[in-house]
């Protein structure tokens, strides 16, 4: 290109060389992109292979999982990123960001309602509040989803547990052992919108008055699992279990 031609033919020649340069450059970048693609897919396969061979360790060993996640983040791969449902993490490990997200929301609801229910929430109530938080209709999130999410939270040691009380699934977010009497009380309260009085326990469960009073007072004073109402129309004194009450907020 040192010598510029003159005349009309020179224009054509210039046009043509410009075109061939453009062709060459796009061919080059195409091959670069292809190369990158193949490298990426190779990397992905390797990572997937790694994840699938060490699947059990990743799932079961918290420290291994931590190391794996650290490795992923150091090479700029977010194992939790991906589409809402699925993603290769989900395929490989049976977990997904969706599951974690749900777990965080379960914690959110449990913690924000702990004040009023003493750390015990009924499954349907939890589902309702989580659904509201996510802005989805009921049924989209199932009990099973929540139970699985709570299981994924276990390594955190927050003490979230699914317990069965009188045929009613409840989630306990405080580390507190419920004794047998309390379990019975919660079940009775469940049937009465949260309200419970000594006489119910005496009549329905055949308890002595002393036993009923002691169990209720323990829940009230020692555990903070129920609230007192001293304006009860019928008995003058009733106990209310917040986790068995239906709250709109």
């Amino acid at each position: 290109m040192h010598r510029r031609g003159v005349g009309l033919a020179a224009f054509d020649r210039q046009e043509q060389s410009k075109r061939s340069f453009a062709e060459l450059s796009s061919a080059l970048s195409q091959s670069q992109v292809d190369h990158l693609h193949s490298q990426l897919s190779q990397f992905r396969t390797a990572l997937a292979h790694f994840a699938s061979t060490h699947r059990d360790s990743i799932k079961n060993d918290p420290s291994f999982r931590h190391a794996f996640q650290q490795m992923c983040s150091s090479i700029g791969v977010d194992p939790l990123a991906g589409p809402r449902k699925g993603g290769w993490w989900a395929e490989m490990l049976g977990l997904s960001d969706w599951q974690y997200e749900l777990g965080v929301q379960v914690v959110d609801v449990c913690v924000s309602t702990r004040e009023r229910n003493g750390g015990l929430i009924e499954m349907s109530e939890l589902l309702r509040l989580v659904s509201r938080l996510r802005g989805v209709m009921g049924g989209v999130i199932t009990e099973d989803d929540v139970i699985r999410s709570i299981k994924t939270l276990q390594p955190l040691g927050a003490g979230y547990q699914v317990v069965d009380i009188g045929g009613c699934t409840m989630i306990r977010s405080v580390v507190k052992e419920l004794d047998e009497d309390q379990t019975v009380i919660l079940a009775v309260a469940q049937l009465n919108g949260g309200r419970i009085v000594e006489d119910q326990l005496i009549q329905q469960k055949g308890w002595t008055r002393d036993r009923a009073r002691a169990a209720l007072e323990n829940m009230l004073l020692r555990d903070g699992l129920c609230w007192l109402d001293d304006q009860d129309e019928e008995f003058g004194r009733s106990y209310w279990v917040p986790s068995a009450m239906q709250w709109d907020i």
Binding site: L220, G224, W227, L228, D229, Q231, S238
Partner: peptide, 13 residues
Amino acid sequence: APPFFTQQPNPTT
């Protein structure tokens, strides 16, 4: 909630 109108004996509550 009815018990909201009663002073609670449990200090945390």
